[in-house]
Design a protein around this nucleic acid. Structure first.
Lengths: 250, 250
DNA sequence: CGACGGATTGATCGTGCTCAAATCATGTGG
DNA sequence: CCACATGATTTGAGCACGATCAATCCGTCG
């Protein structure tokens, strides 16, 4: 069997105990923790649309690198929006094999469930600040306001679209095609001035693409040697030939 | 590269031209085609909940084996519910590699999109009868009735949950684990009297599980020789040891 | 009965995994 | 400021799982 990984929640618990002043990060206080004073929010803000509509209270909270935000099958108390940082959502098999379903970047909403439990776990990839609202208050607002109900549907449908595309990638694309798709996705979502600063390590990328970290590294090296991309540090990447990359992503 | 399949929509066009009396099946008449007089509907009927609520018109339509119901990126005019038969939803890569995202069995709703186009194509696996309503009328109902809006969200969330589980399977499970998961899923969804009659061929199963049809066949043969399952014809399967199967699905 | 598509089984191949070592980057304490 | 420790990344060598190619078997339907 592939991927007999022993790693599990690496040093999460260590960081977690130091991370926040006192409280358990899984039950954030409504009075926000010492979070950054809300920097750059994205152009379109689905959270604002909802909270604006329904007059909900949104508070802020911060997580340290590798800190767990919520676990798989944990009660879903809050819905989150990334203000700064990055988050990974994932599922684990009993032996530690991990599938990352999505990366959440500034502006993204995550942790929205229809039912009362989280179907995937979520961890901060780097130090991260989020905005959050209680799920129950959203549900309540949706019960009276069709616009809110519609917005919740929109967001879930967006997640579904991503998952459908990702199933095709995981089931049928080659390693190189997966990496090409990944680079184009990240380029679209977080490129600034033609350059992207990846928040996640090679292992995260591998677990997102259904590959090992070595295979990801080899694919990136090959693209580098072909001049398709340039590095300035392993996580600072500039795409030099998007067209070529698009032709590789099948 | 794996899976250089040339097959594409096999004999769909042939069947299609014979299939329905006159009309293009992609624009079914509101006056139903000669469909079976609505046999066994499932216990919980999400369609009835909606149509009951909103007083929508639901008509019926039939498709022959391998007939296309709608194509990928085609405008989404209708939402469907399987009355009898079975349907596959899938995406294709340009070279014909196919990923089946879901099988739809009697009672299942499919083709519900948030946007105006279908993100996956759909084909009848065997002769199939569906109930259908216009997407626009659903949208309209959702605009005034929160219960309908909520129901649409529920259904999309159900699809998302399935997709999330399937990403884990496609990204991280071994061939045997995938087949075990598949058998348990089908057992749950279509077993009658401890036996299941699979509507789909080995290739469909392979394209659902991200495997080749040969690998699926070998896994099933191995399970057979281990006494975990019994055959009566390649598609009539009885599970003899569900516990064992569960322990294999990781 | 024969023809056909679907399924099984066998033999071999290749992509991506595993194991291992070297290199690079980052941060820490002297 | 530098030396070192640590983790991340790259690179290499070899292997295994599942793919490919091919032949047979089986069941169904004309």
């Amino acid at each position: 069997m592939y991927h007999l990984a022993i790693r599990r929640k690496e040093m999460v618990m260590l960081n977690q105990s130091i991370a926040n002043s006192v409280v358990n990060p899984n039950t954030p206080r409504t009075a926000p923790s010492p979070a950054a004073p809300s920097p750059a929010a994205p152009a379109v803000n689905p959270f604002a649309e909802i909270t604006g509509h329904a007059g909900l209270i949104a508070s802020e909270f911060s997580y340290k690198k590798d800190e767990e935000i919520y676990g798989e099958d944990e009660p879903s108390e809050y819905v989150y929006q990334v203000i700064s940082g990055a988050v990974r959502s994932y599922k684990l098999l009993s032996d530690g094999r991990r599938q990352i379903g999505a990366f959440h970047l500034p502006g993204d909403v995550f942790g929205l469930e229809f039912g009362s439990v989280h179907r995937l776990a979520a961890e901060a990839i780097i130090d991260t600040t989020v905005r959050l609202v209680k799920r129950r208050s959203l549900e309540q607002a949706a019960g009276t306001d069709v616009a809110v109900a519609r917005k919740l549907w929109t967001m879930t449908a967006g997640d579904l679209r991503h998952a459908e595309d990702h199933m095709l990638l995981l089931g049928r694309k080659t390693a190189m095609e997966r990496v090409a798709t990944f680079l184009l996705e990240m380029d679209r979502r977080l490129a600034v001035a033609g350059m992207m600063a990846l928040p996640m390590c090679r292992r995260d990328i591998g677990d997102y693409l259904g590959l090992t970290l070595e295979t990801v590294s080899r694919a990136l090296s090959q693209l580098h040697s072909q001049g398709v991309l340039g590095f300035s540090g392993a996580r600072q990447i500039v795409l030099r030939n998007r067209q070529r990359l698009r032709s590789m992503d099948a």
